[in-house]
């Protein structure tokens, strides 16, 4: 499914999935996803819980590899490389495709060491102070923490922790940042701060964000994929993509009735 790009500027594709099916053991969790994620845009995944939007997200940085029973068929291409080919190193993938999680998860280390963690792993030789400052500024956190860089990353507020996690992801200069409901644990003010931040970050990074919050998707994203879930006769619930298009199309003039119902709040 390709979003209607006639009205959009033509951009390069970062991720392309073809007939992607995701399994846990024999259980089909998500079926037949064929989407393209454009570069330097914010793509939102919305849908009811259990529809597999986070599962799809975690395929893009191969984080699902941590689950033993997980496997896929179909293809995911990242810049035309087959992401699940046996010669791909998932560790290298995750370094280029960063991730911000639902619950802020700073390491129990200092703010400085949280940011420096990734660059140190990668053998960064330059001036770490500069990199830390730059990353914190990119995450709009510098002014709030510049005087307490040695304090623990877990000692700041939840909203600040989440921006710290964004700064930490940005510090390794990824190509893509995946965000798995990054605001669901935050208050409305922190949420707005992060939404503003997203607009700045998309100048440099491709962003995919999973969200429960439809206002957030409509405010912040350029493209939106609506996921839904259907149960088979055995009661197994399988997610699929109903519709994928420019965000204003999804929210104002969707093709599918299910999408219209969901975005207008009549769903479920």
């Amino acid at each position: 499914m390709t979003p209607n790009l006639q009205t959009a500027r033509q951009t390069e594709t970062v991720f392309r999935t073809e007939n992607l099916n995701i399994y846990y053991g024999n259980f089909l969790a998500v079926k037949d996803v064929s989407i393209k994620i454009p570069k330097h845009c914010i793509t939102a995944f919305i849908g009811p819980s259990g529809c597999g939007k986070s599962t799809v997200l975690r395929c893009f940085n191969r984080l699902n590899d941590l689950i033993k029973s997980f496997h896929i068929d179909g293809k995911i291409y990242y810049h035309d490389q087959d992401l699940y080919s046996s010669e791909i190193d998932p560790v290298e993938v995750r370094r280029q495709v960063g991730m911000v999680f639902q619950k802020p998860n700073p390491f129990p280390k200092s703010i400085y060491d949280n940011i420096a963690f990734g660059p140190r792993l990668l053998g960064y030789k330059g001036d770490m102070d500069v990199l830390v400052e730059r990353s914190l500024k990119q995450a709009a956190l510098w002014d709030e923490v510049k005087d307490k860089l040695k304090e623990s990353g877990t000692a700041i507020s939840g909203g600040q922790q989440q921006r710290l996690c964004i700064a930490r992801a940005v510090a390794v200069q990824p190509d893509v940042i995946l965000m798995d409901e990054p605001c669901s644990a935050l208050d409305p003010i922190s949420t707005l701060k992060i939404e503003d931040l997203l607009q700045e970050l998309k100048e440099q990074y491709t962003i995919i964000i999973v969200t429960h919050n439809m206002q957030q998707a409509s405010r912040a994203s350029d493209f939106t994929a609506f996921f839904n879930v259907q149960a088979n006769d055995k009661g197994q619930r399988t997610g699929y993509v109903v519709e994928y298009d420019r965000t204003e199309v999804i929210f104002q003039n969707p093709m599918q009735e299910a999408t219209r119902e969901y975005v207008s709040g009549r769903f479920g």
Partner: peptide, 24 residues
């Protein structure tokens, strides 16, 4: 979450163990 955070930053299993899990 801490394990995932380290993996998400491109740490290998043993980098995650030595730098995040064992200290914690």
């Amino acid at each position: 979450e801490l394990r995932q955070a380290a993996y998400g930053l491109g740490a290998t299993r043993w980098e995650t163990i030595f730098q995040v899990i064992l200290p914690a």
